[in-house]
Design a protein around this nucleic acid. Sequence first.
RNA 1: GGAGAGGUGGCUGAGUGGUCGAAAGCGGCGGUCUUGAAAACCGUUGAGCCGUAAGGCUCCCAGGGUUCGAAUCCCUGCCUCUCCGCCA
Length: 426
Amino acid sequence: MLDPKLLRSDLDAVSQQLARRGFTLDTGTLQTLEERRKAIQVETQELQAERNSRSKGIGKAKAAGEDIAPLLKEVEGLGDQLKAKEQELALLQDELTGLLMGIPNIPHESVPAGKGEEDNPVLRTWGEPTAFGYEARDHVALGEQLGQLDFEAASRLTGSRFCVMQGPLARLQRALTQFMLDTHTRDHGYREVYVPYLVNADSLRGTGQLPKFEEDLFRTSGEADYYLIPTAEVPVTNLARGSILEADQLPVRYTAHTPCFRSEAGSYGKDTRGMIRQHQFEKVELVQLVAPGQSYDALEQLTGHAETILQQLQLPYRVVTLCSGDIGFSAAKTYDLEVWLPGQQKYREISSCSNFEAFQARRMQARWRNPETGKPELLHTVNGSGLAVGRALVAVMENYQQADGSIQIPDVLKPYMGGIEVIEKT
RNA sequence: GGAGAGGUGGCUGAGUGGUCGAAAGCGGCGGUCUUGAAAACCGUUGAGCCGUAAGGCUCCCAGGGUUCGAAUCCCUGCCUCUCCGCCA
């Protein structure tokens, strides 16, 4: 959520900045609602003040043993009048916050202009696309040939966009997960957390998935109204919801491994082959809660932490800066890491690292106590995948494939593979 | 699943219809004393909204209700704890 004060004081400037990302702000409606809200709020508060002082007077009179009947007569009707105003105000406020909750974040000034994915500039490239003396197979061919990756079984068990893995390949995914968690906790100073995979609507509002993107989520149908998490960002960032952190606790760095569930509504026909786009996938997430002055440094740092994983796995990748037209709803700035996939002869997103500034913190009321002012102020939140495990598995399979269809184990994963150095048909 | 007890400020905890945003203690901050520290003593110490300010308003788990007036009474929900049952 944007700062309502900013919207009041600088509506046109906000509107212009949002136009960069292709969002049209309905300034007229906003202004009208805001004016009405203010008028009604003042009236309501005046009535409340009157009720309070009258009631206090009645209390005193009663204590003094006076007859309060005439005083009661005076306040007749005041209650109803107040109730009506309060209801009017509540309605207006609901409408206003509803509108506010649907406004995306303002892109940072350093975010390049652009309309969509094709306008994202490449910031840097690491490694060279892996060369093979033959036409590289994709992970589907590799995995099925090895007899360790099965989409048919998954569609029988559930439906499309799921997979079953077996044997060393299943273990390889676990190895990737362990390696990532170990690296982030040991080398990068993150604290590992285990969190629920089902969350309530408040959490999703906090990080910005609700109210706008309900159709992307799986929702439970039982008595409890819960959602399957689309990313660990939701439960992990919401750990700070409604709390005030002390300055010496910052920065807070969390990492978590969770499955992620996405309905992928609207992506019919996209990436239908393989495990690039699944309803369920594993991800290791990095989250930082930082003082506002630190968030852009933290973004660079966190992006570097995610890159470390790719480098240690010796996977070629590049970093792109999302342009103003491609950036996500809650983010002020985002870097995507794209890994080289020989099977597609393309770079594909494997991590997305964003600074949300105070956008999520305001929705969550996640604050810190600024020692300079002594007052609670909003935190900044930064997060990124470190990395998407499913896609990392795809990348390892495709980049480490050998002519005979076997897959070598990257050196850094060998300690996690129990002596397996090459995945072969078993 | 059955029975019961609760949810109050950073923490412990008092408050069961009126001047209560809320006693007391702890913790925090500032000071006195001290070479320094501790102890003791004094003061101070929740969050948000409107307002230049004075001041006003809201918040005692959440949402409804009763009342001139609700932290306090009633209803619903959520959460926590205890006992029994069941269970990974």
